[in-house]
């Protein structure tokens, strides 16, 4: 607490100094500061996170179950072509999901093993930073959420996301949703969308759909990072986990056990 206060104060003076130098920036820096403090989740209640235990994904069915559960529940369309494609959770080979960790002699079974990828719900989400309307925003529990009513479709967030987690509705998705889930809305053409960590289910006390879909083998574990007794914290303190592109400082909330 005291460290954080000090750090904040130091940061405050740093920002103030830079503002003084740049002249006109004082108003903007104040905004930057307030936004920073509201974004910081460490001292607040929950911080939702996910651990992906890759060893437990064995058959194609293991992946499909999770993906289908998510995409069905959230009315994610299937266009059948990569140009219009929309996806919330999907797979990418290790060498593509972790391009900077790849090397020539890596075990073949790992190198091409499909890894589950989704929005990382970062602590420092660059997509939130760049959104000109706050249509994408970070909740206090760490979920990077979207307000589809407000999105103007500028796609700045897609350029800013270093994980390729965002999709855009290039055309009306409605005809391409096979089975509609009438409990959840669809999206309209011209807005960006992505995984929401099933915030609508969390509100009802349910785990995310993908996590529930693979509850038998516990390949996906979901929980509160701020609670030392949570399952995710226990796994992270006992097993070695990595995150995608940690060097960018986004602090992803999705961890991988390889």
């Amino acid at each position: 607490m005291s460290y954080e206060l000090k750090a904040n104060r130091r940061q405050f003076f740093k920002i103030l100094g830079i503002s003084a130098l740049s002249g006109a920036g004082s108003i903007s820096s104040l905004f930057a500061l307030t936004q920073h403090s509201s974004l910081s989740t460490h001292h607040l209640g929950k911080r939702w996170a996910m651990v992906v235990d890759m060893g437990k994904f064995k058959t194609e069915e293991d992946y499909k179950r999770c993906i289908d559960a998510c995409h069905h529940i959230h009315n994610v369309p299937d266009f059948g072509n990569p140009k219009d494609e929309i996806k919330w959770i999907w797979t990418a080979p290790y060498k593509n999901a972790f391009p900077e960790q790849e090397h020539e002699y890596i075990r073949d079974d790992i190198k091409n093993k499909p890894f589950m990828v989704l929005c990382n719900h970062c602590d420092n989400p660059s997509c939130v930073r760049v959104c000109p309307t706050k249509a994408t925003f970070k909740r206090q529990d760490g979920i990077v959420a979207m307000d589809y009513h407000r999105c103007i479709g500028c796609r700045f967030c897609m350029a800013a996301c270093p994980y390729g987690s965002r999709s855009f509705n290039w055309r009306d998705p409605q005809p391409f949703i096979k089975e509609k889930n009438i409990e959840y809305p669809m999206r309209t053409k011209g807005v960006v969308e992505k995984c929401n960590f099933c915030e609508e289910r969390l509100a009802e006390g349910l785990p995310p759909a993908c996590v529930e879909a693979c509850k038998d083998n516990k390949a996906l574990v979901f929980g509160d990072l701020n609670n030392p007794d949570s399952e995710v914290r226990k796994i992270l303190s006992s097993r070695y986990a990595i995150r995608r592109k940690p060097e960018l400082g986004t602090q992803p909330g999705v961890y991988y056990i390889v």
């Binding site: 903007s28 000109p132 407000r150 103007i152 500028c154 796609r155 855009f168 309209t188 011209g190 960006v192």
Partner: peptide, 29 residues
């Protein structure tokens, strides 16, 4: 050109209705 690129051009005023100084696009506007 910016207008032509927007997915929801009729909502363009959201940039002014919900000003977001952390977004460079806000400053560019």
């Amino acid at each position: 050109f910016v207008f032509a690129d927007l997915g929801q051009p009729f909502r363009v005023l959201n940039i002014i209705l919900h000003p977001t100084p952390s977004s460079i696009m806000f400053w560019d506007m």
